[in-house]
Amino acid sequence: MLRASITKNRILCGTSSTTRLSGTALRHVRLYSNDDISNPSSLAKSSNLPKIEQQLLKKPARQPKKKSPFLSSHAIENDPNYKMNSFLQSFGQSLIKIFNIDMDKSRAGPIAGSKYYGECKKQALYYPNEPLSESAKFYYETLNLPQSFSQWFQITALHYWILSVRMRALPFKYYRAYQQKLVDRFFRDMELRMSEEMGISSNRIIEGYLKEFNTQLLGSVLSYDEGLMTDDITLAAALWRNIFNGNPNADMRHIEALLGHVRQQLYVLNKMSDRQFGFGDFKFVEPNEVVKPLTKAQEVELRAAVKRNYENMDLPSQRSVLSLNE
């Protein structure tokens, strides 16, 4: 049974395994529970089904030859400790105030086009001879997926879709702005990765690949949308076709683990307010963590904590019409 003790901005519940809900406010929620949903990584590891390599390519997949800066070489995106100087800050704040700039729309660039794209990109990012992140280990070691550019694309496209489900729930003009920035950055980054990291020198070939990836993105988004609106098995089949490359020998335990992983991200996003999401407070839950549904009381407390967090934001650049309640 869950025991909840509510402290400042934090809801703690009692018993065994630690889990985490993403998002700045949701990140403070730590839940412990005994019921039968385990984290996706452990679930996938519980199966010992013999692994049969899928022969997808005639020759080994092309691997990155060099490593470019994660998002760009600009300090804003490259330096986690970057701070704009105070003169520029006050000048910017004055401009926003004088011209009454719609900050929710302006925020789409740095949040969706940079922060959220970075979140999607890093989930399955790998470089030869470099240690894998926790989420990349889940995809390439636990689920035994091949390390290739197109596999990275498919996993990134899945995370793009997860975010776009939440973006649709923003007011229309902001949803369009956020989605546009995210997809633009996705394709611009793929183009750069292909030319700089993968060493493809022909623009014509890159353009051909981009068109192919665009078609694949449209197809996978449609399949995932269908799965979201129907049932688990339809969504699982969509994941099997797109992420597991239609592998006939795919492990059902792995498919279930990935489906649980996707569903828990959607649950966290469902519980986030527009304001939190619009301000970039979402982070994907790691595959070795498990989300437990919130009780009504926890939801009320969480909402109150979020409101307290955002109440003190009164700079012109922090203005927003996005809802704190839904």
């Binding site: 939440r166 688990d232 059902m252 959607l266």
Partner: peptide, 30 residues
Amino acid sequence: LQYISLRDLVNDKYKNYYTLDDKLLRPKGN
């Protein structure tokens, strides 16, 4: 284990556990 996983998927275990409301399923943006 293969059977249990398949059965859980067919029984919508995750859809029912991580329930989503109209906020995502009937999004106000569209």
